[in-house]
Write a protein that binds this DNA or RNA. Sequence first.
DNA 1: ATAAGTTGTGGAAAAAACTTCACAACTTAT
DNA 2: ATAAGTTGTGAAGTTTTTTCCACAACTTAT
Lengths: 214, 214
Amino acid sequence: METILVIDDDHDLRTTLIEVLEDGGLTAQGAENADLALTLLEQETFHLVLLDMVMPGTDGMSAIPLIRKKAPKTRIIVMTAFSSIQNAVQALQRGADDYLVKPFKIDALMLSVRKNLQEARFQECDESVDMDGVFQGLANILRRQILILLHHQGKTRFMDLVRALEIKDHTKVNFHLKVLRETGFIDQDIRKLYSLTTNGRRAAECLSFISKNM
Amino acid sequence: METILVIDDDHDLRTTLIEVLEDGGLTAQGAENADLALTLLEQETFHLVLLDMVMPGTDGMSAIPLIRKKAPKTRIIVMTAFSSIQNAVQALQRGADDYLVKPFKIDALMLSVRKNLQEARFQECDESVDMDGVFQGLANILRRQILILLHHQGKTRFMDLVRALEIKDHTKVNFHLKVLRETGFIDQDIRKLYSLTTNGRRAAECLSFISKNM
DNA sequence: ATAAGTTGTGGAAAAAACTTCACAACTTAT
DNA sequence: ATAAGTTGTGAAGTTTTTTCCACAACTTAT
């Protein structure tokens, strides 16, 4: 069940929003100011917050980074009547995920809510992707060299690889080739030539990304 | 010397912008459409692009993710005359870094350009870490989880980290924190709070890049 | 003041990763 | 046909990484 926190000082609007959300099959709770909201965020996990910009006390704009910090995975949708592009840009830069201009149609709200819940769910799966295999492949310097070599040269014979790497013991290379094969990064054709698989190519590109970025 | 790419189909505006930027001590080049721009981005490194939304062929909005993909470290500032909040939100969500509404004052442009170059420079900081250290840091699943957690949460206390990871033995976490400290990915402040270093932040970004691409 | 919780260190033991070596089947050049 | 080179396996041994445990200094709550 997905839970939503509505942060708005207007009691009527807050109640209406909660009703609408619950009609849509979601669980919703309200908070009338940012401080109360932050306390709630500490106590339970919300998948999404609807945040009013204009509030007494801590205003919505300042609240964004605070919410982001307390609940890094929670989606933040900002709502405001006094909107400007400046404002929207700033809100997104501070970590909001979406921006709704009041008055908005219920449909627009629900669309945004569903879209963001959907994306959040997607990102969750993403994190549980098994990167372990990838890293096992990339963790060794010799294996990285092999990947880069194959990326440059395409299909290569075993002994050519060994010589290019300037390794005396060919069985050592063999060991790492086996690891790479098990990881699914390289493949051997019928003529025994080694080359990168699709995943291997992607891995090589990750390597070049890392070397550019670190 | 910082180089900027101006992508706009309007010849006069393009030339004017390039002049203004060069008067400001920057190096600027123009491209009259997105495809040409992408080719240029392949050939050389730009620190920042100014991107018009409305263009024949590939429009600016579609160009944002393409540019982001080709040049992940390049700052993207979007310019448009036909602006709406919708539009601004979408642009930022697609990976733009800032949004200017035409007509804008030269000063506003230069301010945004300088601010973004400044931020980019900050992100660059110390170069040339060897990949082996990077991979030692990233090779272990628990260490990756720590990096991601710290990336989300910022400064975190030791036991909070342990609990978030749901590890029974706190000394195990301690061991990996030590490795991460030696790798230069994390740091501890005077109050014993752990947080990512600049390198650590970059490593975390590499992680998210890999999880997206593999 | 005492207990409970936090933040660590160091070392033994286990597990995983890596290297080295002995050997063998197979292909190609001479 | 025979030597030289290629491609590979498996096992033993080494090194590195990781876990687990005993313990302790320090801080914070009661």
